[in-house]
Design a protein around this nucleic acid. Structure first.
Lengths: 231, 231
DNA sequence: ACGCAGCAGATTGTTGACAACTATAGGAGC
DNA sequence: GCTCCTATAGTTGTCAACAATCTGCTGCGT
């Protein structure tokens, strides 16, 4: 692992809006604010100990990321994701992670494989402990590490946003319970493909991994226009 | 082309921050604010006829998009792009546009090819007229249309941001003057590949197109640490 | 009973002023 | 002459109050 230089960094270099945005983002990710809920400005500002000004700035940031939906003079709502959104998230993730993996394969594969192995260890531990949320965290970290290892800031930023949306889906579905052994095996295959420099195997496994996740999530989703009328 | 339903849309559905962000984004794109310039809040707010509140919200949005760099208690600066950034932008663009093209090839190729042909017409007209900025606009539109035709909102949003950064590079270089005939031929090849459903040809041409652009831009860039000292 | 005008409550959008911080220019001391 | 300290100007960060708008309810008229 890299050195921990956090002690040397200035304390308050991050703006208040950024900190507030991070807090709300994780809250949305964890399912604290289910999709569709309205976020009142005064209540959130009071709860976070800031005024409405910085909070509104943070909200605009989240709107730009696609996590919130803003209706003028009506309020801010947590974005609701339908089946098409789930498909779209995974299409984008596949595109970005594929590109990241190709960059990794052209670079330092050993270091990347080591980082992925670390994330794999966390997944195994979570799976053994039967901790579903920890498993989701480790899964999240695995893919984040993969893209981070590519060294591309833009792919990294895109993935961060997409992973948050992924967690939103999972949180809304209240633990879709993917079969842990299969999940582990697939990620192990990805790690091995990175280690061995096998691009074709990686891409094939990744695409299968993504389409599997989509079908599982979409199947567990409540039907969009859930009425049983003939139309 | 699709129907023009703009008359039916509500007048002020877009928030002020969004409008302001669009204005500043295009200004940065067009090179009105060169990279590195500080954007004073009071001056911008006065020029746009809004107060500092909405303007700061718009700024946060642009910071989230990666167009601005915020230094606490010091100000907002237009992001400066070095050679690594150029490479990164084109890596991300290649990843996104490749995925978009594969979606298009799996969908309505004819409609997509028609939209691309329209953008190609604008490129030809601009090339004939020798209008470099119009050519850049048409080039921009071509790639935007391609990704829009994929029907993926997320790929669309990513491309919008990446294309703005692309224009930033070009504007900073004061018309890098790519050979117009070659540019036209490459885009024609891309259109034909979409029309014929030739995925391999499309990807190959796209990658060549991107790497060409990178080498051309990087070569025309001022050297990062442009001192001639021995180090 | 049903529908609609008008009102009350709450929420968002905007503004101007105040506080905190940074950078620069000038002068005192060595 | 050079360095360091200080005052000052200009910037950003934050806040509380004001204005505009939407929603739900009440009461009247048909």
């Amino acid at each position: 692992m890299a050195l921990d230089m956090s002690e040397l960094e200035p304390v308050s270099r991050r703006s208040t809006a950024e900190i507030v945005a991070d807090r709300i983002r994780t809250a949305i990710m964890r399912g604290t604010f289910p999709p569709g809920t309205q976020l009142g400005e005064v209540e959130l500002a009071g709860r976070l100990g800031v005024s409405r000004g910085p909070l509104r700035e943070a909200m605009q940031r989240l709107v730009a990321e696609g996590l919130l939906r803003s209706e003028r003079h009506r309020g801010l709502f947590v974005r609701e994701l339908d089946a098409d959104d789930v498909r779209d998230v995974y299409i984008a993730r596949t595109a970005v992670e594929r590109a990241a993996a190709l960059l990794v394969l052209a670079g330092d594969r050993g270091a990347a494989a080591a980082r992925l192995t670390g994330a794999l260890g966390a997944m195994e531990a979570a799976a053994r402990a039967g901790d579903a949320v920890a498993l989701a965290d480790a899964d999240h970290d695995f893919h984040a590490e993969l893209v981070a290892a590519s060294g591309s800031p833009r792919l990294r930023r895109m993935t961060d946003a997409l992973l948050v949306e992924t967690r939103m889906c999972l949180a809304a579905l209240q633990e879709t319970a993917p079969p842990a052994p299969d999940l582990l095996a697939e990620h192990q295959t990805l790690r091995d493909a990175v280690r061995d420099g096998d691009a074709h195997r990686f891409v094939t496994t990744l695409e299968a991994h993504m389409t599997d996740a989509v079908t599982r999530i979409v199947a567990a989703m409540p039907v969009a226009g859930g009425d049983l009328t003939g139309a």
